[in-house]
Amino acid sequence: MDIGLEVPTATDALVDEAIALMRDARVAVLTGAGVSTDSGIPDYRGEGAPVRTPMTVQTFLASDRARKRYWAGSHLGWRNFGAAQPNRGHLALAQLEAAGSVAGVVTQNVDGLHRRAGGRHVVELHGSMDRVVCLQCGQRYARQAIAEQLELLNPSIDLDTAIRPAPDGDVEVDDVDAMEIPACTVCGGVLKPDVVFFGEFVPVTTFQAAEALVTSSDVLLVAGSSLVVNSGMRLIERARRRRLPIIVVNRGVTKGDSRAAVKIDAGASQTLIAFADALAGSTAPAGTGTGTPEGSRT
């Protein structure tokens, strides 16, 4: 079957070895930014990734101006970030889950694309940009609703300005002093995207759900992550302690390579499609969430 994205010949034996480990097994999947690059969302650490200073939770909480700067950039970037579509790698994983090969996906991404691809058991370790939470009362909002409020409060914002998207939906913005940001309609509290900022911890219940998925599975597949983020390595360690085979698919070196039973140095999308073709009987629909298969680093 011509799937349009071919795994390099040099990796064929490794792909076959990984498929053999996953066949008739319960597979937990851990994904990183490399899974979403084919949807047009740049990664943090791959070749060509923008050099930027991330917003920390301490900075966000420290000043009203910092929050204005964040929301101004995030509002502009949301148009591109929110419009991204699941690519064939996302669809391949959803297909594998529907076929019973994949038990669920733990993702470090905040783009919501696994859910939109049809994933039914998705643990979003770092939250999702399509939700907003009040830091005072915990009220949650759809991101689109907050975007509409921002547009009403700031009619002079030029949404057609050139945007350089970043992995968390942010962009760089120079002048934010005139920016007005909405408050919680329930208590008047500070609103924040429902994601884990730098300097925050993954919620305990979220990590427990991820850990339960990994420890109840037979194999751990890591796709598109360099495993630099500590939460990912903690899950690798849980799998190692249970002597689960670990498969790593990523362009370039990862922190988990020494623990991997199989390491495939290739793009996430085409490799996941190959897995779906072998284990689920067919590939993810061609032409959905196109993009190139080149960028799969984090």
Rank of each mutant, 00 (worst) to 15 (best):
Q144L: 14
G100T: 06
H126Q: 13
G104W: 06
R116W: 14
D111R: 00
R120G: 13
H90R: 11
G40K: 01
L76C: 02
P50D: 05
R131C: 15
D64W: 02
A49I: 13
V102P: 05
Q58C: 10
P42H: 09
V106P: 07
Q144G: 09
L96F: 01
G40N: 09
H90K: 06
N80K: 09
Q136I: 14
G82P: 13
T56K: 05
G40M: 07
Q136C: 10
D111W: 07
P50R: 06
R120I: 10
W78I: 09
V106H: 02
L113N: 03
W71N: 02
E124W: 12
G77Y: 04
V105G: 00
V123T: 13
L61G: 03
G82K: 05
L135S: 01
P54L: 03
N87F: 10
G119W: 03
L113R: 03
D38C: 08
A84R: 06
G40T: 01
L113I: 00
L76Q: 00
R67D: 06
V57R: 00
L96S: 03
V123S: 03
G127W: 05
I41M: 06
Q144S: 11
H90T: 13
S101P: 04
R140D: 11
R88S: 07
A92G: 14
A142T: 06
I146P: 08
T53K: 04
A99P: 15
R45S: 14
W78T: 03
G112A: 13
T59S: 14
G77T: 01
D111G: 14
R69I: 05
R140L: 11
V106Y: 08
L61N: 09
S39D: 14
E47S: 04
A98Y: 09
Q108H: 11
D38F: 01
S74M: 12
V51S: 13
D38T: 03
Q139T: 11
R65F: 15
V133L: 05
A117M: 08
R143F: 03
G118Y: 06
C137K: 04
P86N: 11
V132R: 01
G48Y: 10
H90M: 10
Q58N: 07
E124V: 15
C137I: 08
L76K: 05
V123L: 07
F60T: 08
A66D: 12
R140K: 12
S39C: 15
G138T: 12
H114T: 05
P54Q: 04
D130M: 12
M55C: 03
I41Q: 08
H114N: 03
R88C: 04
R67P: 14
S39R: 06
T56R: 02
A84K: 00
D111Y: 14
G127L: 13
M55V: 01
L76S: 07
A142K: 01
